[in-house]
């Protein structure tokens, strides 16, 4: 059976269920690189450009991990999905960076997905990929329907409080974990790019760490697109990168909610767009009402350092909540 590799990074946290279902419906085996490990990060750091951001390095590492396990790598060129904002330029050049940046890679399946043009729409992309695999339009259409249903279920799980990894396990491994209980005394919002906050290695597993401290966690991915779109406009000019826009809007949404006790923004060292997102968050001064913590993650950031800052922050919030100085 043909094997297609989907690196467990970047879009994995957003679209994996859909593409996995699609490929499997077409009788193709999907192979992923699994959780980020020390080894993966080291490989990525070695192969990727030193000046690249951490997530790109991690992506390189995941791709290298798949190197002799698959016949093709699936790296779509996702430009725009909502007809408004585009993805970070590094996403736009992703297939090319992999193709020319690492030697001896399996062939890359790259399709351009740009909702603003009909010939590059998601639907067309499904068909292009299906055709490359030698399938008939009928087979492809059937697979698309299955894929869309699966993605819909995935979104539903996210909206009900699951984090992406939990939702993926839930769908494919049948782990019926209940949505984490919402009875905890404190509730934190973690905002940032999904491939940073949900990557348990680079985020030093912040979500579970908080939960262990008795704090329930909600992330930008638990908020539906509609609610985000309804947020009042913060900047006079729209940010034009999808994930950055989402982060900004999610932050503004959380900052206006009554039930949130703290907001943590996680960003990656060397991330271009975040330099702007961050300053917008600061200037718009959401942080004044709800305690706000900014964590910058790099490939070396020790677990210890982050833990200390996190604990200090949690202590501060707890004291504040009890009404102490």
């Amino acid at each position: 059976m043909l094997r297609i590799g989907i690196p467990s990074a970047f879009f994995y946290y957003v679209h994996y269920p859909m593409w996995k279902t699609f490929f499997e419906e077409l009788n193709v085996q999907v192979v992923t690189s699994g959780k980020t490990t020390r080894q993966i990060v080291d490989n990525g750091v070695r192969e990727a450009l030193a000046d690249a951001c951490v997530p790109v390095k991690v992506y390189f590492g995941h791709v290298i991990d798949l190197y002799n396990k698959v016949d093709y790598l699936f790296i779509p060129r996702i430009v725009c999905l909502n007809k408004k904002t585009v993805y970070c330029p590094k996403f736009l050049g992703l297939p090319d960076m992999i193709r020319y940046g690492i030697a001896n890679m399996p062939p890359v399946i790259d399709v351009r997905i740009d909702a603003r043009s009909r010939k590059d729409s998601l639907f067309a992309a499904f068909h292009k990929v299906g055709k490359m695999l030698g399938k008939t339009p009928l087979q492809i259409n059937k697979a698309i329907i299955k894929a869309k249903i699966c993605q819909h279920n995935f979104q539903k799980l996210l909206s009900s409080g699951f984090q992406p990894i939990e939702a993926i396990n839930n769908i494919f491994a049948g782990q019926v974990t209940k949505p984490p209980s919402q009875l905890e005394q404190l509730k934190f919002a973690v905002v940032g790019y999904p491939y940073i906050i949900h990557d348990q290695y680079i985020s030093v597993d912040i979500i579970n760490k908080l939960r262990k401290m008795g704090i329930s966690v909600i992330t930008s991915d638990n908020i539906s697109n509609l609610i985000l779109r309804l947020q009042p406009r913060v900047a006079a000019k729209h940010l034009f990168w999808t994930f950055s826009e989402r982060t900004l809007r999610a932050t503004s949404h959380f900052a206006r909610r009554k039930d949130i006790d703290g907001i943590i923004h996680m960003s990656a060292f060397g991330c271009g767009p975040d330099s702007i997102v961050d300053r917008y968050i600061q200037l718009d001064n959401y942080s004044s009402k709800i305690p706000f913590l900014r964590l910058v993650i790099d490939e070396l950031s020790g677990v210890a350092g982050v833990s200390t800052r996190l604990e200090a922050f949690v202590d501060m919030v707890k004291r504040k909540k009890r009404g102490m100085p």
């Binding site: 990727a48 000046d51 790109v56 330029p89 960076m97 940046g101 271009g272």
Partner: peptide, 15 residues
Amino acid sequence: FTCIPEIVARTILPA
């Protein structure tokens, strides 16, 4: 430094 498009270009330029 940290220029996104040029980092993409730099990754491809060796080829």
